[in-house]
Nucleic acid binder design. Structure first.
Lengths: 208, 208
DNA sequence: GCCGAACCTGAGCGAGCGCTTAGCCTGCCC
DNA sequence: GGGCAGGCTAAGCGCTCGCTCAGGTTCGGC
């Protein structure tokens, strides 16, 4: 379920829900620009230019530049949450579910690095209201992972000293992939996902 | 060696090497502003204002706003590298040295979160030359950690599938602390350092 | 007491920013 | 064919940005 948006040059199909077509092109252009330069260093002229439009066209579809970031953040976090939820709620042992969660979450951060960068690192550029809304989604992501770890502790599969701290460490491992992953580097998203899943199982003391 | 700059409100004494006094005050003001808002969202008027000076005073001590970020990045990375070098080259088993490296590196990211945030996340705002210089320092940081892991594998203390990948994962764990750590949160820098050191030893398969 | 160097400020320049507005196309209903 | 709504652009407004510059203040050396 995670290969559809992992196309060669960037996860376009994930934005299928955005209509009309011009609004989607602007959004995709904004994701690329924000990922390359950061929100504040990106100009509305740059976004419009990448979408093949004049600067004014942006304001027909979005009220402000910040609304673009807000929409991107919400859709991206919803996708992240969905990935974790699917893994957390499938059947299987806690070990299997945690490995699934980490490998698919890492695959998303590596394959969709452009989107993931914006989603994970540009949050502070949002205003207080939008920021609070996105933070709530982020806490739900944490909760899904923590739930799996708690299940594993309860069933005796895992041996964990500090569940909350370990959850944060697992999230760190996944999220930081968006910072360092390079498409031209030595690994594919699948390989990083498998490696990190193995490392996480070691962290929680799961039997090999 | 890591407590001197972990003062209550922020690691001021780490900048002792910067003179004259006005230049240091501007640099500290810039660190705070960059950490709060990011490089591009920070104005030179804001930096000068925090340092109690007029906007023009900044340009007596620094040629451009970017030079401020460059100086901050270089000093910060040098400090990070020093921390890792001390841990890597002390005497002891690979297990002890890795635990030392991770716990002190994490302590620095948590206690000096303001500085660490700028150092780790504002790198892309530098121009190509400065960026290349800083990236070289960063590769040296990776190499120190990788060296410890290689030692542990060679001595049979560690059981690691992919040394380079595991090194990156260890760095992720440490660096991402700067993103989520909150001074008002449930942990002290020492506690996070100890927890992450334990998790890393599990990742490399070190005996307990 | 005077000089030069070091440091700092008030005022402001040119540029580029986010965003607006007036008006022009295009396709569709009647 | 006329009218109208939606989608778009050219032009540009008001503002703030990074940065400059002429001039004032302070201070050690003599």
């Amino acid at each position: 379920m995670s290969t559809a948006e992992e196309t060669a040059d960037g996860e376009l199909s994930a934005w299928g829900e955005v209509t009309p077509d011009a609004a989607r092109r602007l959004l995709v252009a904004a994701v690329e620009a924000f990922a390359e330069r950061g929100y504040h260093a990106t100009t509305t002229r740059d976004i419009a230019g990448r979408a093949g439009m004049s600067p004014a066209a942006l304001y027909i579809h979005y009220k402000t530049k910040e609304e673009l970031l807000h929409r991107i953040s919400r859709i991206g976090h919803a996708k992240a949450l969905e990935i974790l939820r699917v893994a957390a709620r499938r059947e299987g042992t806690a070990t299997e579910r945690l490995a699934d969660a980490v490998s698919s979450f890492v695959r998303w951060h590596a394959g969709g690095r452009t989107t993931a960068r914006v989603v994970q690192y540009e949050l502070d550029s949002l205003g207080p209201d939008a920021r609070a809304e996105i933070l709530a989604l982020r806490r739900q992501c944490d909760a899904e992972v923590r739930g799996i770890i708690e299940d594993g502790v309860a069933s005796g599969e895992f041996d964990v000293l500090d569940v909350r701290g370990t959850t944060l460490a697992v999230m760190s491992l996944c999220i930081d992939v968006a910072r360092w992953f390079n498409v031209d580097g030595p690994w594919t998203p699948d390989e990083v996902g498998a490696l990190d899943a193995d490392l996480v199982l070691r962290m929680v003391g799961a039997a090999k």
